[in-house]
Amino acid sequence: MLVLGIESSCDETGVALVETAATGLPRLAAHALHSQIAMHQAYGGVVPELASRDHIRRVLPLAQAVFDEAGKRLADVDVVAYTRGPGLAGALLVGAGVACALGAALGKPVLGVHHLEGHLLSPFLSADAPEFPFVALLVSGGHTQLMRVDGVGRYEILGETIDDAAGEAFDKSAKLMGLPYPGGPWLAQLAEQGDPTAFKLPRPLLHSGDLDFSFAGLKTAVLTQARKLGDDLQARKADLAASTQAAIIEVLLKKSLAALERTGLQRLVVAGGVGANRVLRTQLNAACARRKVRVHYPELHLCTDNGAMIAMAAAMRLQAGMQQPTEVYAFDVKPRWPLDMLDTLGAVAA
């Protein structure tokens, strides 16, 4: 079975082809990705209308590139999958509309996919794929969650952010320091030149006794510290970046270890854009090695939003018998769609 996946939830347009077999994990045949970072930099953040218009321009050329790379034809597709939510409403509608139009034209079924499930299952595309069950640390954009994952569609949320997510803490703190958009990668790069102990910043909810997160207070502390530095901010910016990163990573690390201890599981999966952070990976690897816990990540180029994770999630759902695609081509999108409501709200457009 050949699954075409389309991702358009925010500021990346992704298209991919994934092949399933009778046994074993689905295989990535080809994928292509266009990032809108350069377009949005002038505005300091994502402009939804511009994002939607750019998805319209990019999605079909990217699809053609994917078919050319895989040596496949459009007629070879068995299922067309797309991101149904969460995300920007207009951006989601572009991917949903294209997917359902292709499905209708080909007479092939379509399947709406949860964006976060795509991230969650993206490590199964790597050479070192995990096995169920595992604890998952999902750290993408506006989401930070810890989950117990017993199988496809079998997710128990152990803890989640009550305000800003880790990715937002990186980006907003970077903006306060005057770093370009998107701030997270710039902050991480600058932090390599700084002292992570230079400033004493809070670790919100670190000792709360639960597995929830809160990063809004950290962002406020960074703002306060930046104002205190005044004209010295430029000279101390690397130290402030390193201290900010250290605070975020310590919370992610200790909460993840607590989740492993609480569940008794010996496998951790880290997914989402923040999962590409080098310091986070280094510290998680070291801490988990001491506890004889296996850690799995997506390939670095698949940490951000991409079509491969959408095609993979659809293929794994179909393989597990969790869902059936539909040949009803009317569609809707779900800009707000909690992962724990995935099956109660239905994952296929009706």
Rank of each mutant, 00 (worst) to 15 (best):
A314G: 15
H34Y: 14
P61E: 12
V46C: 03
P130C: 01
D163G: 04
A259Y: 05
T220R: 05
G14W: 12
A271K: 10
S35K: 07
P180Q: 14
L268S: 03
A38S: 14
A238D: 10
L111N: 03
V110M: 02
R203A: 06
S173I: 01
E261D: 15
A96D: 04
T224C: 07
L190Y: 08
R317L: 02
T326W: 06
L158K: 04
S122L: 10
K334S: 07
P335G: 08
L345T: 06
A30C: 09
V77H: 03
A101C: 08
D232G: 00
Q266A: 15
G264D: 08
G209S: 14
T144W: 03
G275S: 15
A191S: 15
V152D: 00
G118Y: 13
V98C: 01
R290L: 13
A235E: 15
P338C: 09
L121R: 10
V15I: 15
A221Q: 11
L345A: 06
A311G: 12
L218N: 09
K292G: 00
L74P: 00
V3C: 10
E19W: 05
G87Q: 03
G24V: 09
S8D: 11
C288K: 10
L138W: 02
Q145H: 02
G183P: 10
A32Q: 07
P185I: 11
A75C: 03
L342F: 06
P48K: 12
H207C: 00
P180C: 14
P133D: 04
L201D: 02
P338Y: 08
L265F: 07
L17P: 04
E69D: 14
M1S: 15
A21F: 11
V66D: 11
A241S: 12
A347T: 14
M1C: 07
E117A: 12
Q283S: 02
L280R: 03
H296P: 01
V18R: 12
I248T: 11
D212I: 00
L106G: 03
